[in-house]
Simulated assay, not measured.
Amino acid sequence: MPKREDIILVECPRDAIQGISRFIPTEKKVKYLNMLLQSELFDWLDCGSFVSPKAVPQLVDTEEVLEQLYPSNKTKLLAIVANEQGASRAVKSENLTYLGYPFSISEVFQQRNTNASIADSFERLKGIVEMAMSHQKEMVVYISMAFGNPFGDDWSNELVLDWMGKIAALGVVEFSFADTTSEASLSQITQLFEQAILQFPALNIGAHFHSPKWSSLEKINAAYLAGCRKFDGAILGFGGCPFAEDELVGNIPTEDLLGYFEGKYEDKILTLSSEFIKIIS
Rank of each mutant, 00 (worst) to 15 (best):
E266R: 12
R4D: 02
N83Y: 02
R14W: 06
S185L: 08
S88Q: 08
T180N: 04
S274L: 12
L9F: 05
F23H: 12
A207W: 07
W44H: 09
V160C: 09
N83T: 04
C12P: 04
V10Y: 01
L248G: 05
Q111I: 08
A79D: 05
K219T: 03
V56I: 15
Y142G: 03
T254R: 01
S187R: 14
S215Q: 10
T190K: 13
L270F: 14
L192I: 11
L192G: 05
L192A: 10
S21R: 13
Q188C: 09
S106A: 12
P253N: 07
L78Q: 07
V65D: 02
T254P: 02
E5N: 14
T62R: 01
E266V: 10
I252C: 10
I220S: 03
A222P: 00
I277A: 13
G152K: 07
A16F: 07
N34F: 10
D179T: 08
S93E: 13
V249E: 06
D256N: 13
E27C: 05
K213G: 09
Y98E: 05
A55N: 13
K264D: 14
W214Q: 14
L33I: 08
W155G: 06
S281V: 07
D232N: 13
S274C: 10
S273Q: 13
S274A: 15
V81R: 00
V172N: 00
M133G: 02
E94I: 11
I17Y: 03
L66P: 02
E64S: 13
S104F: 04
A244S: 11
F109A: 03
Q58D: 15
D15N: 09
S39L: 08
L225F: 14
I143P: 00
S211Q: 10
G148R: 06
L78M: 14
F23A: 12
E138M: 12
L96F: 07
V51M: 04
L125T: 00
L66S: 02
T97G: 03
D153G: 06
T97Q: 10
G171T: 08
A82C: 12
S144L: 06
I277S: 15
E174W: 09
L270P: 04
N251Y: 07
L192E: 04
